[in-house]
């Protein structure tokens, strides 16, 4: 757990950049986002987590005016999300899940286009500065289509930053990007947040989730939990045991379905066994802990354990 991130959580009295309530979106009969509320303070890096199809992208699109909410109210950067999407667009940098700049334009041409669309002052310098800032200057004449995933993501971030937005909405920005590029990307995000930029980022990576100041977990269009990573782990009330030893796969098979055992997840050479009810879990595990050759340790549950636990309990509620 990144303690620096936990400490950086801004107090509730701080200035809210996003503050929405009751946000609902339906596609035909299907409710994709249901009664969603979120509050993001200035300078925060807010992580959006949840399984595929949980409504993360839809929520982000509603926040930046790409989709109109069927119900709900609130403000984004002080503008009404339902009526003032045009103003919101001016001050938001939105990075789409899929690369959405022009592959047949060069890096500089792409940025120049974006700068013109946003009516950026001193366009040429702004483009040069942004290219420099993200280390893209050497590739400025290269066509965007010829870039690899990591560089495309950098270019997309550059395009988002060009008009000096106050809020960044990043939709799975690091999907398919190698670990080094991801780490560099997150260093950038933290630098930006330190300068006062607010960032809402959706991700599937737990290490990225841990680098966020606050997290929201969504499933089936509903907000299941939010808070800092530490808070989420504490709130979950989950107990996790780690087992090391031979034939973990067989052990896992035996453990599944035992009372109190909610989750059995292999982690390389160890097995993580978690449950919401600590006493019952302990009772169930007692006979196994006697077995020779196994080493059992009680550990703090990871975010992933917590989220999968949330998902499983959510399934019971909604399906």
């Amino acid at each position: 757990m990144n303690s620096a991130a936990a400490n950086a959580v801004v107090s509730p009295s701080a200035e809210a950049v996003i503050d929405v309530k009751g946000l609902t979106k339906k596609f035909g009969e299907r409710t994709v986002v249901d009664d969603f509320a979120i509050r993001v303070n200035r300078g925060q890096i807010y992580g959006f987590l949840g399984p595929n199809g949980s409504g993360k992208t839809t929520t982000i699109r509603m926040l930046c005016g790409l989709l109109t909410a069927d119900a709900g109210e609130g403000q984004c950067l002080g503008y009404d999300i339902r009526r003032e999407s045009q103003q919101i667009k001016r001050h938001v940098g939105y990075m789409t899940q899929k690369f959405s700049l022009y592959e047949d334009l060069s890096l500089a041409e792409n940025l120049d286009f974006i700068a013109r669309v946003y009516d950026v002052k001193d366009r040429k310098q702004a483009v040069d500065k942004t290219l420099e800032r993200l280390g893209l200057t050497a590739r400025r004449t290269q066509l965007a289509g010829s870039l690899s995933g990591g560089w495309k993501q950098r270019l997309a971030l550059a395009a988002c930053l060009l008009h000096e937005p106050k809020l960044l909405l990043l939709d799975e920005p690091t999907a398919g990007v190698d670990p080094k590029a991801r780490r560099e990307f997150w260093d950038q995000i933290h630098d930006l947040a330190a300068d006062g930029l607010t960032v809402l980022v959706s991700t599937h990576y737990m290490d990225e989730a841990e680098r966020c100041h606050a997290l929201a977990y969504i499933a089936y269009g509903r907000l299941l939990a939010n808070g800092t990573a530490t808070q989420l782990i504490q709130q979950s009330g989950m107990t996790t045991w780690s087992a090391a030893g031979p034939d973990l796969h067989d052990l896992a098979r035996e453990l599944r379905g035992q009372p109190g055992v909610d989750m059995v997840v292999p982690f390389g050479t160890t097995l993580h066994v978690s449950g919401a009810d600590a006493t019952q879990l302990e009772q169930s595990l007692a006979p196994y802990r006697e077995r020779t050759g196994y080493r059992w340790v009680r550990i703090e549950p990871g975010l992933e354990d917590v989220f999968i636990g949330l998902m499983n309990s959510a399934k019971d509620n909604f399906q």
Binding site: G65, L66, K89, L101
Partner: peptide, 13 residues
């Protein structure tokens, strides 16, 4: 088709 529409729509254009 190329997905650039989403980006274009997100701008003030």
């Amino acid at each position: 088709e190329r997905g650039t529409m989403e980006n274009l729509l997100a701008t003030p254009v």
